[in-house]
């Protein structure tokens, strides 16, 4: 091998090695979810679906899945209702404080979750939102707004500006234009955005951690299971979450790319 191809090999090798590093832990979880043993040791001796059946009999875990799904559905719906019209206005009009809104809406993403979490924990009771699953839902809506506004704003920007002008030119009112011309064209982006919101809400920890009372959400239930000690059941539920998230995210990426 000459030096040029050796160099090429080293570059490709280290690139691939890092990519493997990113996926190795996920592969480990999936593999060990089929491990019959209680200890996650190398090498795997027997394969079984035992932990999946344990999982489906774990009432607490199932309940947490239900809790997470309801929170995700409600907060996604509210975030869309608040976020899409605002994103449309931010795309269409120029006004004072637009940049400020842009910055503020992103704060739950750009600022550390711990600060957002303790800020909400301290303040929510003042506006009558007790620390409860309701508070968690409100917290989720707030950070999902960041996702909805940025995603939809990006989609509006890619929309052909002449579409709207053509609609007006043909006599459509602003609301007819929005519902008959704009909305059908951003439909796929909305679906993509919904999937992304659902996944993010179902995985959220930092804010939920501080606002929760009563039943656990799914990630916090897993957290609790982990603190109780390593149980291979976590491997099984993790594998299921991994499959669900990956599918939803890939679908969302695809829908967002569509014209």
């Amino acid at each position: 091998m000459n030096t040029t191809s050796l160099k090429n090999f080293l570059v490709s090798f280290s690139g691939i090695a890092v990519l493997l590093f990113l996926y190795f832990p996920l592969v480990v979880i999936v593999l060990f979810s089929f491990n019959a043993d209680t200890v996650n040791s190398f090498p795997i001796q027997h394969f079984s679906l035992k932990w999946y059946s344990v999982l489906f009999r774990d009432d607490e875990l199932l309940q947490s899945i239900g809790t997470s799904i309801s929170i995700a559905l409600i907060s996604t719906a509210v975030a869309l209702l608040i976020g899409i019209p605002a994103a449309y206005a931010m795309h269409k009009y120029d006004f004072k404080g637009k940049k400020l809104i842009d910055k503020i809406v992103l704060m739950p993403i750009t600022l550390p979750g711990i600060v957002t979490g303790v800020a909400m924990l301290s303040f929510f009771p003042f506006v009558g939102v007790k620390i409860s699953l309701t508070a968690v839902t409100f917290g989720h809506i707030t950070f999902l707004c960041a996702i909805v506004v940025t995603q939809m704003l990006a989609r509006f920007k890619r929309l052909d500006p002449y579409l709207e002008q053509a609609a007006y030119d043909l006599g459509a009112t602003p609301s007819a234009t929005f519902f008959k011309v704009i909305l059908p064209n951003i439909k796929t982006a909305i679906i993509g955005c919904v999937l992304l919101c659902l996944v993010l809400s179902m995985d959220e920890i930092p804010v939920t951690f501080f606002l929760i009372a009563g039943n656990n959400t799914l990630p916090l239930e897993i957290y609790a299971m982990m603190r109780r000690g390593i149980t291979p059941e976590v491997n099984a539920i993790s594998t299921l979450i991994f499959i669900f998230s990956t599918t939803a995210i890939l679908l969302s990426m695809r829908l967002n790319k569509e014209k």
């Binding site: 996920l26 979880i29 993010l200 957290y223």
Partner: peptide, 8 residues
């Protein structure tokens, strides 16, 4: 991986 659950 950015979008896959932190806890997992």
């Amino acid at each position: 991986p950015l979008w896959v659950s932190y806890i997992i």
